[in-house]
C-alpha cells in the first residue's frame, strides 16, 4: 500500500542558520521575499478562513456578492444542524475506535518487529527486511478485491474488523521508522540486562520502549491521522450508517444535501479541527518523523 510519505515540519532554527538562500534572496530582494511569503501563505490559508466563516453564517450571508468574510451575526446553528442531519457523535465514536486500534497496533506490533529488525540476529533477517520495504510499494488497489471477497466470506464486511485487525498485524512504514530509531539507541543498557539474564521480551518492553517514547509518539500520531483520514477502507467495508466513520459520514451528508453549505462547512470544520489540534500540540513529533523516514538528502 502506498501512503504519502510521512511528513513533518522542521525546527525553525534550522531554516536559516546562514545565508543559505542567498541566490533567491538576491534575485527578489528582501522586501519582496516577505511580500511573497505573506501573499503565498494567504492563498494557502484562505480556504480555512472561508470554511470557518461560512460555517458561522446565515444563508443570506453565505449566498452574497461580494463575499462576506466576517459573519454578522455569528450563527452557531449550522453546527447543531449537522447533528440533526447526520449522527455525527456516532461517526466520531466509530472513527476514534478505529483510530485507537491503529495506534495500539503501531505501538505494540510494529515496535516488536522493529526491535527484531534492529537487534536480533537471525538467518534471512535482512532479506525479510527488504521484502517488508518492498511491501510499501504494492498499490493498495491490487489487494482490494480479494480482501473484500475474503472479508465477505468470513462475514467481516460491515464490521470494524477489516479496518482494525490488519492494523494489529504490522504496517511496514511504521516498522521502518521505528527500526531507524531503535538503531540510534546505544546497546550498552540492553547488554547489561542480557548479562543479568533478562529475556528479550522484557528488554524490549522495559528498556527499549521507554527510550523510544519520542519515536513511538510520532508513529502513534501518524497512525491516528491515517485512520482518521482514511476514506477508501471505510467506503468498501462499511455499509450501515450507524457504523460509518467521519470520512464516510461526511461524504454521505455531502451527497444528500449538496447545497447546505453552512452545515457542510460546520461538519468539515469539526472533522479538521482535531487534526489541527493534534498538529499544533505535537509539532515536534512531526519534525521527528522526517529524520526517521531517512529521506534527508
Amino acid at each position: 500500500m502506498i501512503r504519502e510519505p510521512a511528513i513533518e515540519a522542521l525546527p525553525s532554527r534550522e531554516i536559516h542558520p546562514s545565508a543559505r538562500g542567498r541566490p533567491l534572496r538576491r534575485l527578489l530582494g528582501r522586501g519582496s521575499v516577505q511580500l511573497t511569503l505573506v501573499l503565498g501563505s494567504l492563498v494557502f490559508a484562505l480556504p480555512f478562513v472561508w470554511m470557518v466563516s461560512t460555517s458561522l453564517k446565515a444563508d443570506r450571508q453565505i449566498f452574497a456578492f461580494p463575499p462576506i468574510w466576517v459573519p454578522d451575526p455569528f450563527i452557531w446553528g449550522n453546527f447543531s444542524a449537522v447533528f440533526i442531519y447526520a449522527p455525527m457523535h456516532l461517526y466520531f465514536f466509530n472513527t476514534l475506535t478505529i483510530a485507537l486500534a491503529h495506534v495500539l497496533g503501531a505501538i505494540f506490533t510494529c515496535s516488536l518487529a522493529a526491535y527484531a529488525f534492529s537487534r536480533l540476529r537471525a538467518p534471512g533477517r535482512d532479506i525479510i527486511f527488504m521484502v517488508m520495504v518492498s511491501q510499501m510499494m504494492v498499490p493498495y488497489i491490487v489487494t482490494l478485491v480479494p480482501l473484500y471477497l475474503l472479508f465477505a466470506k468470513i462475514n467481516w464486511v460491515d464490521t470494524f474488523y477489516p479496518l482494525t485487525v490488519p492494523a494489529f498485524l504490522g504496517t511496514p512504514f511504521y516498522i521502518f521508522m521505528l527500526r531507524q530509531f531503535f538503531l540510534t539507541i546505544p546497546m550498552e543498557l540492553e547488554e547489561a540486562a542480557i548479562i543479568d539474564g533478562a529475556g528479550r521480551l522484557r528488554i524490549w518492553w522495559s528498556i527499549v520502549m521507554p527510550l523510544a517514547k519520542p519515536a513511538l509518539a510520532t508513529v502513534a500520531i501518524f497512525s491516528f491521522m491515517f485512520a482518521w483520514n482514511d476514506f477508501t477502507g471505510p467506503l468498501i467495508f462499511l455499509n450501515t450508517r450507524e457504523k460509518f466513520t467521519l470520512s464516510l459520514g461526511l461524504q454521505a451528508f455531502m451527497f444528500e444535501r449538496r447545497t447546505m453549505w453552512g452545515p457542510l462547512m460546520a461538519a468539515s470544520t469539526m472533522m479538521i479541527a482535531p487534526i489541527l489540534i493534534v498538529f499544533f500540540l505535537a509539532q515536534k513529533h512531526f519534525i521527528q518523523g522526517i529524520a526517521l523516514t531517512g529521506i534527508k538528502a
Partner: peptide, 21 residues
C-alpha cells in the same frame, strides 16, 4: 511554514467538500 504545510494534513474528504464550495 506552518501555514503552507497544514493543508497537506487536512482529511481528504473534509478538504474535498471544502473545495467543492
Amino acid at each position: 511554514r506552518t501555514l503552507f504545510y497544514v493543508p497537506s494534513i487536512v482529511p481528504i474528504v473534509a478538504g474535498a467538500i471544502l473545495w467543492v464550495w
